[in-house]
Structures are given as structure tokens and as C-alpha cells.
């Protein structure tokens, strides 16, 4: 037996070394998280510190001005609201329609595979590419001009793939047992889609749509390509007016040499953030409501 030591005698657990390694890894992982959170907090703190003194009612209700104390972002705010409304009106029917077709109707063959792969790729295309496409297609070729409509159509192209992907995800999440039950009761395909699939997928579709829209209103690059940097002292009243949006207004202010305009830019960022965060909050609320319902 002495020539054959037991397994236990051959073990070398190195307990204290393993414990130390464990805690080092723990702190490295924590640091990785903190890099993101701390820089975000610092950024937010600076923006709030610089921007809050400039926030006031007249900042929202006045047009831009070359005098910082009189400058406001009314035209940009209304431009953003216009864009958001039009983009929603264009993307929701088209995006949901495309998603329903791909998930419920399209035959599964090489053609639908190509479409699928392409939609995923389109969702990753840089936004400036969409801006240049919009400039060539809508502004010049279709001669819509540098208008709200051209901007909205361009951003529609930008967010459409995202909305299609999100909607497909939501539609795919509807249990097949619901569809089977619908067909077994004598419903045809459209009745199953309209009465069962769409209502069940709606919260997921809305969540994805809102998140996609909030991406659209934060985009500056494609809108700069469409609308150029303009100094507007009016609110667009129809889709064929010229326009500006919040990210562009912020960009204009940041590029001014005077310090005061940087304060204005920070205040503009606060307004944009409030809009984005409230849209995300709505999305989260819808998601939670949906999850609760499906858990019951």
C-alpha cells in the first residue's frame, strides 16, 4: 500500500491561492462595470451642472438667437416632434406588416432567407449612409427638398430594419398552440393573425418600436445630410417645410466659440435626454406589464 499513495495524498488544493484569485477576478469584473457607470455619471453630472442654469420656460418656447440669453430651441423641439410623429406613422404599418409577412406568410425558401439576412444587415448599416441615401433619393431624385418629409422618410429607412426585427421577435414569441387553437376553431389565416397573433405580440412590438423611434430622434448624422445646418426661426407647419431637430441644434451650439453656447448645448442635451428617457420608460413599463400578464 505504501507504494500506492491514495488520491487524497496526491491532491494540492492551494486553497488560499484560489481564494485570492477569486477575489482578484471579482474586483476586475466590478471595475469593468464601474468604467461604464462612472463615466456616465460624470458626463451626466457635468451636463446637469452646466445646463440647468440655462433651463427655463423661454428656452423651450423661444427660437434660436445669436444672443445666448435669448436663445431657445422651440424650432428644434417641434422639428423633432414632427419627425417622430411622421416616422412612427410610416414605420409602424410598414415594419409590422413586413414582420407579419415574414413570420406568418412567407414560404421558407432561399429567397426568404436572403431577405432575412439582409434585414439583419441593414439594421447594422451606419446612419450616415442612410443620410446620404435619403439625400440622393428623397431630396434630389424625388425632389422633395430639404423638408420634414424627406427627413422623416430617411429616418424611416434607418429604423425600419430595427422595427421589423423587433416585431418578428415579438411575433415569434406567440406560442404556436394559440395559432393551432385558432385554426381548429375554423379561423382562417388572417383571422388568426389579427385576433390572436397581433394582440399577443403587441406589447413586444410597441416596445421595439418605441426603442427604435428613440434611436431615430437621437440621430444627428443622417438629418444633417438631409436638412444641413440651418438657423430656423419658425416651426414647421406642414411636412414640406424646412426643419431642424434637437441633435442638430445641440451640435450647432457646441460648435460656437462662446462659453455661453456650451451651456445652452448642455441644456439642449437635458431636454433631449428627458424625451429619450421617458420614451424608454414607456417601453419598460409596457414590457413589464406584458411579462406580468404572461406569467399569470
Amino acid at each position: 500500500m505504501a507504494t500506492n499513495p491514495s488520491i487524497q495524498e496526491q491532491l494540492n488544493p492551494r486553497l488560499s491561492y484560489r481564494k485570492k484569485l477569486g477575489s482578484v477576478v471579482y474586483f476586475l469584473l466590478l471595475a469593468a462595470v464601474l468604467v461604464g457607470i462612472v463615466s456616465l455619471i460624470v458626463l451626466l453630472a457635468r451636463i446637469l451642472f452646466e445646463g440647468i442654469p440655462w433651463l427655463s420656460w423661454h428656452f423651450i418656447s423661444d427660437y434660436p438667437s445669436r444672443f445666448p440669453e435669448r436663445a431657445g430651441l422651440k424650432s428644434a423641439l417641434f422639428g423633432t416632434l414632427w419627425i417622430m410623429g411622421l416616422v412612427a406613422a410610416f414605420t409602424i404599418p410598414i415594419g409590422v406588416g413586413a414582420a407579419v409577412y415574414l413570420e406568418e406568410y412567407s414560404p421558407k425558401n432561399w429567397f426568404s432567407n436572403i431577405i432575412e439576412v439582409n434585414i439583419s444587415n441593414l439594421a447594422g448599416v451606419p446612419s450616415i449612409v442612410y443620410g446620404l441615401l435619403g439625400l440622393a433619393l428623397f431630396v434630389q431624385w424625388m425632389a422633395i427638398g430639404r423638408t420634414v418629409l424627406a427627413g422623416a422618410l430617411t429616418l424611416t429607412l434607418l429604423v425600419l430594419p430595427i422595427i421589423i426585427l423587433a416585431s418578428r421577435e415579438a411575433i415569434r414569441g406567440v406560442p404556436d398552440a394559440y395559432r393551432q387553437a385558432g385554426y381548429a376553431l375554423g379561423a382562417d389565416q388572417w383571422q388568426v393573425v389579427r385576433r390572436i397573433v397581433l394582440p399577443s405580440a403587441l406589447p413586444g412590438i410597441l416596445t421595439g418600436t418605441i426603442l427604435a423611434l428613440s434611436r431615430a430622434i437621437g440621430e444627428a448624422a443622417p438629418v444633417i445630410a438631409i436638412s444641413a445646418l440651418v438657423y430656423l426661426t419658425f416651426v414647421p407647419t406642414d411636412p414640406l417645410d424646412r426643419f431642424t431637430v434637437l441633435p442638430i441644434q445641440i451640435y450647432t451650439w457646441v460648435s460656437r466659440p462662446q462659453d455661453e453656447f456650451r451651456g445652452l448645448a448642455a441644456a439642449g442635451i437635458i431636454v433631449l435626454l428627458v424625451i429619450l428617457l421617458s420614451m424608454n420608460a414607456i417601453a419598460i413599463y409596457l414590457r413589464n406589464k406584458y411579462q406580468q400578464r404572461s406569467r399569470e
Binding site: P175, A177, Y178, Q180, A181, G182, Y183, A184, L185, G186, A187, D188, I196, P199, S200, R293, S294
Partner: peptide, 19 residues
């Protein structure tokens, strides 16, 4: 669809609609 209105079906797992 007309057949299925005449011949109903109950499935293995209860599958009421979320309605």
C-alpha cells in the same frame, strides 16, 4: 376552415387564448 367549424378539437396541453 369550414371543416374545422364542423369538427372541433381539444389539444394535449390546455391552450386558452390570453383573452
Amino acid at each position: 376552415t369550414e371543416v374545422r367549424a364542423r369538427v372541433g378539437m381539444v389539444f394535449q396541453k390546455p391552450n386558452p387564448f390570453p383573452k
